[in-house]
C-alpha cells in the first residue's frame, strides 16, 4: 500500500469515526488519536523519508490536505455537538411566557394634573407664561378689580367662602388677571399668560358640584388682539384636548369682566354632534367661558383701554376630565380611590 493509499484510507476511517462520535470527549479522543504526535498521520509522514525526491512534495501536500480535512471535520463536529448541548439546555429552560410580569411600584399623575399639564404645555408652546396666584384672595382682586363691585348682582352667581369681609377663598382664577395686569410692563412686549389653580365655591358636594375644583385662566393683552384670535385660540385648545375633529362654537354670555362675553361649546364627543342625551340633543357641550377683557378691568389695573385690549378665558379641568373620560361624579377627583387614580395611565 502506497503512502498515498494509506493516507486516503486514514482519511476515510477518520471521517467515519468523527461522524460517529457522540460527545466532545469522543471528538477530543479522535483528534488525539488521528492527529497527535504518535498518531498514524505523523507516522505516515515519517515514512516520507523513503520516497523519491520528486514524490515527496506531492505526498507531503496530500498529507497536509488530509490533515486539514480531518481538522475541519473535527471542528465542525465539535460545533454541532456543542450546539446540540446548548439547544438541549435551552429546551429545558423553557418557561410559561404567559405568566404575568412581575408588578413594579409605579405611580400615576392625577388625571386633573394631566389635563393641566397638557394645557400648560400647549400654551407654553405659544409663548405664554404660567403664573400661579394665592388661593386665599382679597375681595379686591377676586371681585372688585374684576368689575364686580360690592352689591353687584352677578356676585350671587358665585357663592363665596369668606374668611373675613375682605378675605375669601378665591372663587375663580380670574384675580390673576388683575394681579398680572397691575405688574406687567407692556414696553417689554405683550402679556400672554395662563394661570392654573384650585378655586372654591360655597356649594354642597354632589355628583356635579364640588366646593373645590380647578380652573385655568388665560389672558392675552396687546395692541391688536381680536375676537377672532380668541376663537382661534379656543379652537387650538379644543383640538389639543379632544382631537382635531372637534369644532368650537361661541355663544353670547355674560361675565362682568369681559365684554363681549361668550361661552364656548365643543362638538359633543359622545355623539359627534348628532345629538344625544349627554348634549341634551344639541350636539354641543359647553366647556368654557371667555370674552374680550372689559375696559374697566384694564382701567382699574392701570392699563389704558384705548391702547391695549385683548381676551381672557377660563376653563375647568375637572369638567374637561369628566367629559373626556365620562367620569360621572366630580367627587371622584378628590376622594382619591386608588382604583380610580391608577386608571389614567396613557402617557403619550
Amino acid at each position: 500500500m502506497s503512502l498515498k493509499e494509506r493516507l486516503t484510507e486514514l482519511q476515510q476511517k477518520g471521517l467515519a469515526e468523527i461522524q460517529k462520535s457522540q460527545d466532545l470527549k469522543d471528538v477530543n479522543q479522535i483528534r488525539v488519536n488521528l492527529l497527535g504526535k504518535k498518531g498514524p498521520i505523523t507516522e505516515v509522514l515519517r515514512g516520507m523519508r523513503d520516497l523519491e525526491a520528486e514524490e515527496r512534495p506531492k505526498v507531503g501536500a496530500f498529507a497536509n490536505e488530509v490533515r486539514d480535512n480531518l481538522t475541519a471535520a473535527l471542528a465542525k463536529r465539535r460545533e454541532d455537538l456543542e450546539a446540540a448541548v446548548l439547544n438541549a439546555r435551552l429546551a429545558k429552560e423553557t418557561i410559561d411566557v404567559t405568566l404575568p410580569g412581575t408588578p413594579v411600584a409605579k405611580g400615576e399623575p392625577h388625571v386633573i394634573q394631566q389635563i393641566i399639564d397638557q394645557i400648560e404645555d400647549l400654551f407654553l408652546g405659544m409663548g405664554y407664561q404660567v403664573l400661579s396666584g394665592p388661593e386665599v384672595e382679597e375681595d379686591k382682586y377676586n371681585f372688585e378689580m374684576m368689575n364686580l363691585p360690592k352689591n353687584h348682582p352677578a356676585r350671587d352667581m358665585q357663592d363665596t367662602f369668606y374668611i373675613t369681609k375682605e378675605i375669601l377663598m378665591r372663587t375663580q382664577t380670574s384675580p390673576m388677571q388683575a394681579r398680572t395686569l397691575e405688574k406687567h410692563d407692556f414696553s417689554q412686549g405683550p402679556l400672554k399668560m395662563i394661570s392654573p389653580g384650585v378655586v372654591y365655591r360655597r356649594d354642597t358636594d354632589d355628583p356635579t358640584h364640588s366646593h373645590q375644583f380647578h380652573q385655568v385662566e388665560g389672558l392675552v393683552i396687546d395692541k391688536h388682539v381680536t375676537m377672532a384670535d380668541l376663537k382661534g385660540t379656543l379652537q387650538v385648545l379644543a383640538h389639543e384636548l379632544f382631537g382635531d375633529k372637534f369644532d368650537v362654537r361661541l355663544r353670547p354670555s355674560y361675565f362682568p369682566f369681559t365684554e363681549p362675553s361668550v361661552e364656548a361649546d365643543i362638538t359633543c364627543f359622545n355623539c359627534g354632534g348628532k345629538g344625544c342625551k349627554v348634549c341634551k340633543n344639541t350636539g354641543w357641550i359647553e366647556v368654557l367661558g371667555a370674552g374680550m377683557v372689559h375696559p374697566n378691568v384694564l382701567k382699574m389695573a392701570g392699563v389704558d383701554p384705548d391702547v391695549y385690549g385683548g381676551f381672557a378665558f377660563g376653563v375647568g379641568p375637572d369638567r374637561f376630565a369628566m367629559l373626556k373620560y365620562g367620569v360621572d361624579d366630580i367627587r371622584n377627583f378628590y376622594l382619591n380611590d386608588v382604583r380610580f387614580l391608577t386608571q389614567f395611565t396613557k402617557k403619550g
Binding site: 407664561q129 400672554k192 384670535d229 376663537k231 361661541l250
Partner: peptide, 26 residues
C-alpha cells in the same frame, strides 16, 4: 361690539391666532 358680534353671528367670525411681538413661553 357684543351686540354687533352676536347679531352678525359668532360663527361668522374668522379663526386666527394672536400675532404681535414674540414672547417666550417657559
Amino acid at each position: 361690539l357684543e351686540e354687533i358680534a352676536r347679531i352678525y353671528g359668532y360663527d361668522n367670525i374668522p379663526v386666527t391666532l394672536p400675532t404681535g411681538r414674540m414672547t417666550q413661553g417657559r
